[in-house]
């Protein structure tokens, strides 16, 4: 009959209106600040820098290679390389980022920086309550604000973080083996060279050799 559909619709909305008072299950929304829906594991918004260990400054995995800075489509990463080197998580001397800023008001959460980083140093965060009353500086995060521990990474993306850890460990084993082999070879060479007339040159060489393979396997890793 004419208008029947309208009456059915009205009945439906009336049921909703009354039902939402009676049963809490009907409510499709949660009251946000007090209650939150759990985020899915794959959720992401802005990048952060991972560090190992407890001291964020020492443990940063980033070696300031600036690949991410070049790849970032909206160009919102700003990196200054350090002049000096300092030991990274594996104890090898490395360049580190003296300045690492991400302007998250420009970042478009594309995750490209994460994809291109050869050192697993930058990952996506899930933190979304970032509003600030500082219009200019508040959304320009520096390396201290960006640094988050590996444990935090495990918390927000457990599967992904374990994979990354396994990969890094494998690489470390490989690197150590190679370094050991190289060191062994160098030692043998040094022993052979000990008879040679130029001891000063030979003494300098193992240091160079020990340095070079340490960085190399990680570069191959990606």
């Amino acid at each position: 009959m004419l208008g029947e559909g309208i009456l059915k619709g009205l009945a439906e909305t009336a049921r909703n209106a009354v039902g939402s008072f009676v049963s809490k299950d009907r409510l499709t929304t949660v009251e946000y600040p007090e209650e939150r829906l759990p985020l899915p594991e794959a959720s992401r918004n802005f990048p952060f820098l991972v560090y190992d260990g407890t001291d964020w400054e020492k443990g940063l995995r980033c070696v300031a290679c600036q690949i991410c800075e070049k790849e970032c489509p909206p160009k919102c990463i700003y990196i200054d390389k350090s002049k000096d080197k300092k030991p990274d998580a594996f104890g090898r001397p490395q360049i580190y980022p003296a300045k690492f800023d991400i302007d998250i008001s420009v970042c478009m959460s594309c995750q490209i920086c994460v994809e291109v980083c050869p050192f697993e140093a930058i990952k996506m965060d899930t933190q979304y309550e970032l509003s600030t009353d500082d219009r200019f500086g508040g959304l320009l995060l520096d390396r201290k604000e960006l640094a988050k521990s590996n444990e935090y990474y495990h918390q927000i993306h457990p599967t992904e973080a374990s994979e990354v850890d396994a990969k890094l460990a494998a690489e470390k084993v490989k690197a150590d083996a190679k370094a050991k082999a190289a060191a062994g070879a160098a030692a043998a060479k040094a022993a052979a060279a000990a008879a040679a007339p130029k001891p000063a040159e030979a003494a300098a060489k193992p240091v160079v050799l020990a340095d070079a393979p340490a960085a190399k396997p990680q570069g191959e890793g990606d």
Binding site: A14, N16, A17, T28, T29
Partner: peptide, 10 residues
Amino acid sequence: KGLGRMQNRL
């Protein structure tokens, strides 16, 4: 509020 309730919101 009424529209919210009809859409099962608060």
